[in-house]
Amino acid sequence: MRFRTDLCNIKIKLQSSYAVKNTRSYAAIAYLFLAPALILMGVFTFWPVGFNTYLAFQDYSIADGTATWNNFAHFKYIFHEELFWNALKNSLLYLLIVPVIQLGALVLAKLVNNKLPGMTFFRATFYIPVITSISIAGVVWIYVYKYDGMLTWLLTSLGLLHEQIDWLGEPKIALYMMMIFTFWKGIGYYMVLYLAGLQAIPSEVEEAAVLDGANAWQRFWKITVPMVKPTILLCTLLSTIAAIKVMQEPIVLTKGGKGDTYTALFYVYDQAFRNFNFGRAAAAGLVITFFCVLLAIIQFRFFGEKK
């Protein structure tokens, strides 16, 4: 009896390995195809995370490549540094831009998603900031924000302002000025994604809503928004990540100012490539990575529920 069951077990095992044989040969091919992507990611994405973790606990000299354990000195330092906390706070404040840019991009996509004349022109025009390198765009925007620049001129000539303001030099407003720049730079990108989402909606749905007597406002909120929900979720995710990772804006616009426009990653950049303190930069980077992963988990939960 015992013998029989054993035989049965063997038979079952044989059969199941038999069944997955094809599947297993696909696995080899699958990993072969994935190899370039995974190797490159391993070297340039995952290895740095590991190496950063190591560096964060060391005094590292890039000149001779020596590293010595320093008993959390970097962490102790940044935890007591106001500049770091300020940078972290600024990065979180930057999340305010997400809903604004998303709503703006969706409205814009709606405005250009039709067959009226000139739409190609408008789409291309709205995309100019996206296809302009941030360094080059920054050069021009410095002239927008200079104390005698375009913004001062515009508000003065509209009678809203009676003095000259150095928009990027005022600690209270500089960060928000940077956000306007980010809005300008990024809205076209999300517009294109929404455009793709909108074009996937069959026009009959909108026509049916017109027949049902919905006005443009109602159609936007009751038809368009629910139907592009997947796109909204994707874009919100992308833009949240982008907002928390802002660093090039301060590099090209303010060089950090007096500390008021430091973002978390700009702090890392600043420590690494201006102070050449790689260990401290890595420690700060680790703290920020932790925040990003936390945010990612929250968003994935959110995404998971919606889908």
Binding site: I241, V268, A272, T289, A296
Partner: peptide, 12 residues
């Protein structure tokens, strides 16, 4: 990896 701040990876 989209969530990881790739800028942090610049040093390594």
């Amino acid at each position: 990896t989209m969530m990881l701040p790739s800028e942090v990876a610049m040093i390594p």
